[in-house]
Amino acid sequence: MSQYGDIAILAVELFPDLQDPRDAWQMATEAMGQDIQTQDQVALHTFLALCEAGKVLGIPASATGPLDGDPLLMALQDLPTNPQAADGLQSTAQEVLLGLWTVGLLGEGSPEQA
């Protein structure tokens, strides 16, 4: 697994106790011994966008989620039939998306749910 994929998975696991995706991400980042860097902000925003859109299992959607035409959501929609769908995203965004998708934490269509 990748660094940001692992952080995202841990953040989902921490969410039930914290009830805030941003707090869960921060705690997961600290638990993994990572310093907050600029790249981390891209990964964080990717994680938050997926949460806000209601795509992460166990985390409710928010009213401010990304729009359907968002490149991240389009990549997620295409992943089940096109494994290269995330190629157009920044590498840290890819790590978050693919990390969560691979272990079945992203709505219907994740490999673990098939």
Rank of each mutant, 00 (worst) to 15 (best):
L18M: 12
E52T: 03
P71A: 04
L18W: 12
Q39N: 14
M27A: 07
V56H: 00
D78C: 03
L18R: 15
D70L: 03
G65I: 09
V56P: 05
G65R: 15
P71Q: 07
S62K: 13
C51V: 04
V42Q: 07
L44K: 05
D20Y: 06
G65M: 12
L72T: 00
D23H: 11
D68Y: 00
D68P: 05
L57P: 01
W25M: 02
M74I: 15
T64H: 12
T81S: 12
M74L: 14
V56Y: 03
L79F: 10
D70S: 14
Q41S: 14
I36V: 14
A28I: 05
L18F: 14
A53G: 11
D20P: 08
Q41K: 06
H45S: 12
A43S: 02
P80A: 08
D17N: 14
W25E: 05
G58P: 09
L67H: 14
A63M: 11
R22Y: 13
T81Y: 05
A43I: 00
I59S: 08
I36N: 11
L48M: 12
M32W: 08
I59T: 06
A53D: 08
V42F: 13
D78H: 05
A53W: 04
D17E: 15
A75P: 04
D78Y: 00
Q19N: 12
D20L: 03
R22D: 13
G69R: 09
Q26N: 06
L73K: 02
D40Y: 07
D35H: 07
I36D: 10
N82F: 01
M32N: 08
